[in-house]
């Protein structure tokens, strides 16, 4: 239930029509969704759910099907390994770790996009990773609130 609710809220955030000039500084809400699940509730997440969640993200962003599955799998792998330690530090340090992990995801995204014929600028992907990491703290609170609403047991953090 929590998974579906957080996914729908994430899709709503992605679907909000922002001005095109803002696209460069918008956080990647889909990535934050995976970051929250992989860091905070990884014991409830499965690869199948992750792959299924990536499909509407690809459709909503207009990217090739499979691009977000690749990014999500890499993020989930890295954050699940780091999870227990990252959960214990404050939100600022968490944001730094999220940024570093997102840089690796940006590299995967760059590779995947090049493979599909796009010509992305890596620097813009880095800017997007930074904006996404900055949005981690408020998005974490939002997802925690949604988890609380749906009766998901809380995880102890710092």
């Amino acid at each position: 239930m929590t998974f579906v609710v957080t996914l729908i809220v994430t899709l709503l955030l992605i679907a909000i029509p922002f001005p095109s000039a803002m696209a460069l500084v918008l956080p990647h809400f889909g990535v934050l969704f995976v970051v929250w699940w992989a860091l905070m509730r990884n014991y409830r997440l499965s690869m199948t759910l992750l792959m299924l969640a990536s499909i509407p993200m690809d459709v909503a962003y207009g990217t090739a099907l499979g691009l977000h599955a690749l990014i999500f799998a890499l993020l989930a792998y890295l954050l699940t390994l780091l999870g227990p330690r990252v959960r214990q530090v404050n939100w600022l340090r968490q944001s730094v770790v999220v940024f570093l992990v997102l840089l690796l995801a940006a590299a995967a995204s760059y590779w995947g996009r090049t493979l599909t014929g796009q010509d992305p600028e890596f620097l813009l992907l880095v800017v997007q990773a930074l904006c996404t990491a900055l949005a981690w703290a408020p998005m974490r609170l939002l997802f925690e609130w949604l988890a609380h609403l749906t009766g998901e047991p809380e995880v102890r953090t710092s």
């Binding site: 690869m47 992750l50 099907l65 499979g66 599955a69 690749l70 799998a73 995947g112 493979l115 599909t116």
Partner: peptide, 10 residues
């Protein structure tokens, strides 16, 4: 997962 994703993209 990565192999599957790349295959789907292709």
């Amino acid at each position: 997962a990565a192999t599957f994703s790349v295959a789907v993209m292709f």
